[in-house]
Design a binder for these strands. Structure first.
Length: 877
RNA sequence: GCGCAGUUAGCUCAGCGGUAGAGCAUCCGCCUUACACGCGGAGGGCCAUAGGUUCGAAUCCUAUACUGCGCACCA
């Protein structure tokens, strides 16, 4: 304990007259940085450490109010942990990898990446202005494109960091990573190498979910269903040897890709046809008619065609029955040229089939659909006019055209065969709120494809893999050359595999680098291992893995949470973190998710300027985890008011500790002698204890609710009751009040500190920093009832005094009199317990209510059951 | 189709077995030696609907209806 009289106390204006967050908050940010108070200390043991697996925001534009919301919630939890004495490890990563960055750079500078072009060292990017015409886009080399991406993300990240600091996130800014940086490339590649060694990864040329706009494979987790209107086309099929049937399809353009026709095994209508061959209209292809449980007799006509490939069921059927592949959709979404005279497109009438198909080659799927419809109609092969229908179509979440299944060589991680284990891992994590685990469970149970991790893009982590090229110039994908762990990161496009030289690249007898990059999730799924240093620093990793908490949003449980659990299990046989804190969304007042366009009109920077960081954090802190919150600026105002109130109430309370009453000596529990004061202290002790349990469950919102209520109650009632005594009581009486006030303010500052780090730090610095020896409130210990173990009060004293004061106030308000209006008569009737509790507080009550002592009477009723009955008569002025 | 959340005052939400709560908004007052960026007071609710359990239900159970979301199906 240091003496309270520090240099600042000597100054004439000890306290600022008004609270001006816009000037105070940035200054505090600098003070925290200089004080290094958010630094992780690697010397302390794991059990004293609280490790956060911070979400790396996508650096592809700007942060919006939703980010502020969820990151502030995380910071509240982290700050509380720090005040519990934990050594917090709170890093920040930047997700600057992958498609969003590519798209941003393309649009910002009007460029396209063309891997065939040579590097231009003199290339000067020009920001695109005005309208964007695709024809004006400049084509640049892969290396120029990557340089542009890196330059852009570096400047975006500076903007992000500034906002996070301004919001008061207690991040250790020495602990950062960028998902496209060398450390992450190395970790991602090391992960791949490890999975390869363990047999969890394989490459295969199979039909894969394909986005024709971006011309890349995508994973199941990145798909979403969108409602679309389509048409049922009733198509007449023939049967070899005579007969026919009708199939209803929404995708007639896949007719040339038909490889089989299936009906339910028990469907009597089609039983006689099993084993025979159907003949497709227009193309005359003979395809087997087979039984399949997949066919639903109730749907369509009960018999359906299997094509390569309409959906995942087609893929499965094709695979299970070893049928030929008649791929007609190309990687660009157009129909490929094919020959119906040759396998696998064998037709009974190749000339007619080729003539028909000639109308389709080069068309996009949608165009081909209309064309086929017309052709079927002309050929008399439509049994009815097309009927409109609503259908759900699979899209890549960032794409504009429906996904297709296209055969392509891709790398996959084996998740299907590990479903049970991954479910079990998910169960070991504590989810906040608990029901969010259901989402995880449902997703894992519904998985139907392995995790495709390769993407045919440029800006990403390359696979550390090469392939031998045989003497005929064919790449041998069956014998991948995987880089050695110690050589990582490598770029197979510029680095050579061991035992080869650069002259052999792409040559017969030489090698070829894997051209693909990894899915961005292949990297993000490693965040706890990236920040722990799994691939580079085993000792550090042991101290930081698994993490304590993963904060994240609920829509990416199926991706980020699931993939992270998968990787941690495959690499370390462990959960990645013990707690998953799932934040809700910010929704617009119209109840929709806040859209980008709405987010652009209200920027976090503007809100910080208008309302202060504390106000925004207050709003975020009011919302429970997992719960969506309506965007409502009036809550910011409430937060701002709270900060101001803390400022003013603290100013008053601290002034009392400086008065003659304290005589310069430090105040402590022994000074609290007045029953009203000890009653208040007892009450506050209860609040303090309660907060511990709620914070332990990450239920900061519940804690904030009653902390805030207790604080306003303190200001409006206890403070008002005790004010007069503090000013003009006897020295001992004043001292009692001052001691209670000082402890109370110190407690509230600490309770509010995780939510309102700025105002609490500002007030703390006035006196508590010197008084307690804790320079920052954010390193001060979380309040404990034990601090006032010696003080035991009767809360009834406070309660009863308050009831009587309320009655006085109500009377004055009813008579439209000012608070200062004298009370001539005050008659209280209450039970014996309340009466004896009230007696010691009478002086305070008279003073606060301007009650004429002579007009007071107290009558004891028999029982304490009923509330005190209070009669008030006002004076004449 | 399956599942998860929710439905409480005009708005945003808390309460989750014992007499309906807060903030905002509305209205009426009040300059009170911390704060008018303040203070006091008032009005305002079949706690979605219907059954059940219980001495007692906003709270537990079962249906139903809406709302939001997730998953699946998608010929």
């Amino acid at each position: 304990m240091k003496d309270a009289s520090t240099e600042t106390n000597e100054k004439k204006s000890e306290f600022p007259a008004n609270y001006l967050p816009a000037s105070v908050e940035p200054a505090l940010c600098s003070r925290w940085e200089e004080g290094k108070i958010y630094h992780y200390d690697p010397a302390r043991p794991r059990r004293e450490t609280f490790v956060v697996d911070t979400p790396p925001p996508t650096v592809s534009g700007s942060l919006h109010i939703g980010h502020v919301f969820s990151y502030a919630q995380t910071d509240v939890i982290v700050r509380h942990q720090r005040m519990l004495g934990k050594n917090t490890f709170y890093p920040m990563g930047w997700d600057d990898n992958g498609l969003p960055t590519e798209r941003r750079v393309q649009n910002l500078f009007g460029v396209r990446c063309d891997p065939a072009l040579p590097y231009d060292p003199d290339y000067k990017p020009q920001p695109l202005t005005g309208k964007k015409d695709l024809k004006d886009y400049v084509h640049i080399s892969r290396r120029n494109f990557l340089e542009l991406c890196e330059r852009q993300t570096a400047s975006d990240e500076k903007v992000y960091e500034a906002l996070w600091r301004r919001l008061g996130l207690s991040i250790d800014w020495r602990q950062t990573y960028s998902t496209v940086g060398a450390h992450c490339r190395r970790t991602s590649q090391a992960s791949f190498v490890d999975l390869f060694k363990k047999g969890h990864v394989y490459s295969a040329e199979t039909p894969t979910l394909w986005d024709t706009t971006f011309k890349t494979a995508v994973a199941q987790a990145e798909c979403e269903d969108r409602e679309a209107s389509g048409f049922f086309h009733d198509v007449k099929f023939g049967v070899e040897g005579g007969g026919g049937f009708v199939i209803s399809t929404t995708r007639p353009e896949l007719l040339p890709a038909c490889i089989a026709v299936v009906a339910h095994p028990d469907d009597e209508r089609f039983k006689p046809l099993f084993g025979k061959k159907a003949v497709t209209p227009l193309f005359g292809a003979r395809v087997p008619i087979m039984p399949s449980f997949h066919a639903d007799p109730e749907k369509g006509t009960g018999i359906m065609m299997v094509c390569t490939f309409g959906d995942i069921a087609d893929v499965q059927f094709w695979r299970d029955h070893d049928l030929p592949m008649r791929q007609i959709i190309g990687r660009d979404g157009r129909l490929l040229p094919v020959d119906f005279g040759a396998a696998p497109f064998d037709s009974a009438d190749p000339a007619a089939a080729n003539a028909a198909y000639a109308h389709l080659t080069g068309l996009y799927a949608k165009q081909a659909r209309n064309k086929v419809k017309t052709m079927l109609a002309e050929a008399g092969a439509l049994a009815a006019d097309p009927r409109p229908t609503q259908q759900a179509v699979k899209f890549y979440e960032k794409g504009d055209l429906p996904l297709e299944f296209v055969p392509a060589r891709q790398w996959y991680i084996k998740i299907l065969e590990n479903k049970a284990a991954l479910l079990e891992q998910g169960r070991k994590v504590k989810w906040h709120p608990e029901f969010m685990f259901k989402r995880y469970e449902q997703w894992v149970e519904g998985l139907n494809q392995d995790w495709c991790i390769s993407r045919q893009r440029y800006f990403g982590v390359p696979f550390p893999v090469w392939y031998p090229v045989d003497n005929d110039g064919n790449t041998d994908f069956s014998r991948p050359i995987v880089a050695a762990a110690e050589t990582l990161p490598v770029d197979p496009q510029t680095d050579c595999p061991p035992g080869y030289n650069e002259n052999q690249r792409g040559r017969p007898g030489g090698f070829a680098g894997d051209p693909d990059v990894m899915d961005t999730w292949a990297t993000s799924s490693l965040t706890p291992m990236i920040s722990s240093g799994w691939a580079s620093d085993k000792a550090r990793h042991a101290k930081l893995f698994p993490a304590d908490m993963r904060p994240q949003a609920h829509e990416i449980i199926r991706t980020w949470a699931f993939y992270t659990i998968t990787k941690s299990w495959m690499h370390e046989g462990s959960v990645p973190w013990h707690n998953a804190a799932i934040s809700g969304w910010v929704v617009s007042p119209e109840k929709g998710k806040m859209s980008k366009s709405k987010g652009n009109t209200i920027t976090p920077e503007g809100l910080l300027q208008t309302y202060s960081a504390d106000a925004l954090r207050y709003w975020a802190g009011k919302a429970k985890l997992g719960q969506d919150t309506v965007y409502d600026e009036s809550v910011f105002k409430v937060g701002m008011r709270l900060a101001t109130k803390i400022f003013n109430a603290s100013k008053f309370a601290i002034m009392q500790t400086r008065g003659p009453a304290s005589a310069g000596a430090p105040l402590g529990p022994a000074d609290i002698t007045e029953p009203l004061d000890s009653a208040w202290v007892s009450h506050l002790k209860g609040i303090v204890e309660k907060s511990r349990g709620d914070f332990a469950e990450y239920d900061y919102a519940a804690a904030l609710l009653y902390i805030e209520t207790a604080f306003w109650d303190f200001c409006d009632n206890y403070l008002e009751l005790v004010k007069g005594r503090a000013y003009s009581g006897t020295p001992a009486q004043a001292r009692s009040a001052a001691a209670a006030l000082e402890w109370t303010v110190g407690v509230f500052l600490r309770l509010f500190a995780p939510f309102l780090p700025f105002i609490t730090e500002e007030v703390w610095s006035w006196s508590f920093a010197a008084r307690t020896g804790h320079a920052s409130v954010h390193k001060a210990p979380w309040p404990a009832a034990a601090e006032m173990a010696a003080v035991e009060g009767d809360e009834l004293t406070l309660k009863t005094a308050r009831k009587v004061l309320d009655a006085v106030r109500t009377k004055k308000a009813g008579e439209k009199r000012s608070v200062k209006w004298p009370v001539a008569k005050l008659a209280v009737e209450c039970g014996p317990k309340a009466a004896s509790a009230l007696k010691p507080a009478l002086e305070d009550l008279f003073s606060a209510g301007c009650v004429d002592k002579a007009g007071f009477s107290l009558k004891e009723s028999a029982s304490d059951e009923a509330d005190p009955a209070v009669t008030v008569e006002l004076g004449a002025a």
